[in-house]
Simulated scan of single mutants.
Amino acid sequence: MRSTSFHRSGTQLTAEIVDGDGPPLVIVPGVMSDAATWRPVVERLGLPNPVVTINRRGRVPSGPLGPDYSVRTEIDDLHHILDTLGGAVELFGWSYGGLIALEAACERSDLRSLIAYEPVSAPFAPAAILPVRAAVDRGDLDAAVRLVNTGVSGFSAEYVAALRESPAWAVLRPLAAPLPTELAAIDTYPVDLPRYRALTVPVTLLLGELNANAEPYGTAFDRIAEALPQARIDLLPGQGHLAHAQAPHLLARHIAAAVGARPRATGLAAQRRS
């Protein structure tokens, strides 16, 4: 694994790269995650393809979000990285990264496939934005991590208490710093869902079985799935929104299967299963 840098408008963007042969698989993480968070999945993919895991803005060693940050900023960052890589790629996005990937896909014609694991869109947890911002503004990253786990992801206080005693807590604290700005960006971004129907690239949507029809991830998923009748729906059994951390072997298998299914014709790609 090696690191590389991309520069756009004076901001450094970085990624971790596993070399290989063929079209790259580009991974776009969501909030509270970075390239390091996705290493357990990358290590289990078993694909010959190069794998490029992006460290989005706000994640060391990439630059800060910037004063005019928005979802558009992330879309343009992704375009810049894909243009720099050159050629067609297999594109995967998780959560906020799924929204970024979908929006970029609507503006490109060179993708080979698109995989989105529980992409989010507005309205998304609007009640959590102000409390999380207040916690970050006063430097209480512990409170921010707690709030996003309880107020957004819906985990119990007992779950959060156990998480705080685990090594993961130290990883999550710095990732909470850009969180309120990212949540506000998601909640104010006007997604034009009807244009998703025009996507001709093969699309796979991944849904954690535990989030089916549940707020906020399942309902966000349903909005996007309805706008993508051509997509293939793939259910992750026994999982919620965090399969990359809780079942990386399972998620890697589903991602690899979606990439492997890429050569089929668009008509076949439109078949949906649950």
Rank of each mutant, 00 (worst) to 15 (best):
2 R>S: 10
5 S>M: 13
8 R>W: 11
9 S>A: 15
16 E>D: 07
19 D>Y: 03
20 G>R: 04
20 G>V: 07
21 D>E: 12
23 P>I: 06
24 P>E: 02
29 P>Q: 08
30 G>T: 00
31 V>F: 02
32 M>R: 07
33 S>K: 05
35 A>T: 01
36 A>K: 06
36 A>F: 08
37 T>E: 01
42 V>L: 03
44 R>V: 03
46 G>E: 01
47 L>M: 00
51 V>C: 06
53 T>G: 08
53 T>W: 02
54 I>P: 08
57 R>V: 08
67 P>H: 01
70 S>N: 10
74 E>I: 04
75 I>P: 04
76 D>L: 15
76 D>S: 14
81 I>N: 04
82 L>D: 01
83 D>T: 14
85 L>Q: 05
85 L>G: 02
86 G>P: 09
87 G>V: 10
87 G>Y: 11
88 A>C: 13
95 S>I: 00
96 Y>M: 15
100 I>Q: 01
103 E>S: 02
106 C>T: 15
113 S>H: 11
118 E>D: 09
119 P>S: 03
124 F>G: 07
127 A>V: 05
127 A>L: 04
131 P>D: 07
134 A>V: 07
137 D>A: 15
151 G>M: 14
155 F>T: 03
158 E>N: 06
171 V>G: 01
171 V>D: 12
174 P>C: 03
176 A>E: 12
179 L>H: 07
181 T>F: 11
181 T>S: 10
187 D>W: 04
193 L>Y: 03
194 P>W: 12
205 L>A: 08
207 L>A: 09
207 L>T: 02
208 G>T: 10
209 E>R: 08
212 A>D: 15
215 E>N: 06
216 P>E: 09
217 Y>E: 15
217 Y>H: 14
219 T>Y: 04
226 E>G: 11
229 P>W: 10
233 I>N: 00
235 L>W: 15
241 H>W: 02
243 A>S: 09
246 Q>G: 09
251 L>Q: 09
254 H>M: 13
255 I>E: 14
257 A>I: 11
259 V>F: 00
259 V>W: 11
260 G>R: 13
260 G>K: 08
260 G>A: 10
261 A>G: 11
263 P>H: 10
268 L>N: 02
